[in-house]
Design a binder for these strands. Sequence first.
DNA 1: AATGCAATTGCAAATGATTTGCATTATGCC
DNA 2: GGCATAATGCAAATCATTTGCAATTGCATT
Lengths: 152, 152
Amino acid sequence: MIGIEQRVAIFEGQLKQAGLRMTQQRRLILRILAEAHDHPDAKGIFTRAFEHDPTLSLSTVYRTMKLLESQGAIERHAFEDGVSRYEHADQQHHDHLIDVETGQVVEFSSPEIEALQAKIAAELGYEIVRHRLELYGRKLSKTGRKRVKKDV
Amino acid sequence: MIGIEQRVAIFEGQLKQAGLRMTQQRRLILRILAEAHDHPDAKGIFTRAFEHDPTLSLSTVYRTMKLLESQGAIERHAFEDGVSRYEHADQQHHDHLIDVETGQVVEFSSPEIEALQAKIAAELGYEIVRHRLELYGRKLSKTGRKRVKKDV
DNA sequence: AATGCAATTGCAAATGATTTGCATTATGCC
DNA sequence: GGCATAATGCAAATCATTTGCAATTGCATT
C-alpha cells in the first residue's frame, strides 16, 4: 500500500511517457481513489471529488477512470447491479463476496480456487486470461465466523 | 433436457396459477429458447422470433424474459459486454468460460470449486446465496485439450 | 514570464440497453 | 359469443456511459 504522493508521481510519469498531461482533476480523482476504502462507482467518485472542486464534471470522471484503467492504476468491477465500480490496483489479486442484504463488499482470495480454475480451463483447451468470481451471500447468524476486510 | 411441448405445458400451468395468460408471443419465445443452443441476448431472441412473427416487439421479449426468469424457467447472465444473455434453466448448474477471441461460451462445472466457495464464505461468516464465476480465456494452440460443450 | 499548440475539460447531446405509460388487442373463464 | 383484464406494440422515458465541440489549460519552448 503506497502513499498518495507516490501514486500521483508514478501516474504522472506514466502520463508523461504517453505524451499526456497531469491535470488538477486527474490529481483530485487519484487522491479520492487512494483515500477510498470501498468500491465506489463513477457517480460516487464524482460526488466526493465535487466537494473539493465544484467545477469538475462527471464526464471527466468517466474519462479519467478509463485512462486509469488503461494504465493499470485501477481495476473496474461490474457486480450484479450493472454499474462499474472501481478500486485502486496496488493490492494483491482478490475476489469479492457481496452481502446481498447490505451491498457490503468483502474481499477474499483463494489460491486453491485459482489453481482449480487453471486446471479446468486447461482441460477445456484454454488458458485463462482473467476471471470473475463473485459470491453473493447472507451473513450467518452468530456462530464461528472470521471477518477480514469490509467496505461498501 | 425435456421437450418443447412439455416446457410450454409446464409454463402454462405456472401462468395459470398466477392468473396469467399463455399468449402466442410467449409460446413463440419459449420455443426459440428451447431450440437455442447458445446464450442469446434480447435482441438475438427478438431477431429469431421476428422471423416467425413480424408483429412481435422487442418490449415483449424483454417483458417475457423477465417473466420467465421470475418463474425460474430461464437464467440470465451478464458477461463482460454488459448485455443480458439468457439460457433455459432445465439443465444442471454450471459456470461459463468465455473465449476472449471469439466470444464463444463453453459451459463447465466444478464441485470442487463450489465446495471451496462455500468454505470460504463460511469462514467469512456468510452463507452463499448465489455466485458468478466466469473464466475468460484463449484457446491453447494444439496440445492436450478436451472440448466439452460450446456455443456462442 | 510570454507564446503556442495540442491535450483536456465542461456541457449538452448521442448512445445503447432496458423499462414503462398508454391506448388497443387478445385470452380464457362465464 | 361476451367480458373483464392481462398482454401487446409503440413511443417515450430511464440510466449509465460516451462523444462532439468549443473553450480552457498544461507544459515545452522561447
